[in-house]
């Protein structure tokens, strides 16, 4: 079932991937999309950046240097999550342990998919982004109730999350259940427009 645990406030260290245009093929290469479940995709998150061809880990790559339970916030370069519509991308990131992604621009479909999987897509200004990149070891606090991202230097940034998605995350509302509750309106629309089966 897709019900998410409610999210409100959490603190975490950040993991920084400063490259711009990190597309969903980088987050999870297409050859791992033949799965019929969502389980275990964290193992192949950023697979081709994370492992050598022989399967050994690339020691310098950030996801190989951090403790996933300590680093729940991924800071990416501009236009994060561009490319394909694969929901496997947020599935891989949340399975790895991330609870939020921060960038100066986050692609539409990735953003929509993230919100349905308890992964907060937070768009910040270039100034805030710069502060995150300058101190990649820092701990930040994300307060969804207040829409606030607090940096280690005391800077507080107010972010925007679409109102309904935010409510779903805060209250653990089940999006499928919500749209199923619209069925009376849907049936009347179909009647009115001649689209009934």
């Amino acid at each position: 079932m897709s019900n998410q645990e409610p999210i409100n406030t959490f603190s975490s260290r950040i993991a920084v991937l400063p490259e711009a245009n990190i597309d969903t093929d980088q987050i999870i290469p297409a050859r791992f999309l033949t799965t019929t479940t969502k389980a275990g995709l964290g193992d192949v998150a950023f697979n081709d950046w994370r492992y050598n061809a022989d399967g050994s880990k690339k020691p310098d790559f950030i996801l190989n240097t951090i403790d996933a339970s300590e680093h729940r916030v991924l800071v990416g370069g501009d236009n994060f999550g561009c490319g394909s519509s694969r929901e496997h991308a947020p599935w891989a990131l949340t399975d790895f342990g991330f609870k939020a992604v921060i960038s100066t621009n986050i692609a539409d479909i990735f953003k929509s998919n993230s919100l349905k999987n308890g992964l907060l897509p937070i768009v910040v200004t270039p100034e805030i982004h710069e502060k995150l990149l300058k101190n990649p070891q820092q701990r930040v606090t994300i307060d969804l109730e207040q829409n606030q991202l607090s940096l280690e230097d005391g800077t507080v940034f107010v972010f925007h999350i679409e109102a309904f998605a935010r409510q779903c995350l805060l209250e653990g509302v089940d999006a499928m259940g919500w749209i199923l509750n619209r069925l009376p309106s849907i049936e009347s629309y179909e009647q009115k427009t001649g689209k009934a089966a």
């Binding site: 897709s2 998919n113 749209i179």
Partner: peptide, 11 residues
């Protein structure tokens, strides 16, 4: 995404 594929299949 796949969550929305489910929404459209169902509604």
């Amino acid at each position: 995404g796949t969550s929305e594929v489910g929404h459209v299949l169902a509604t």
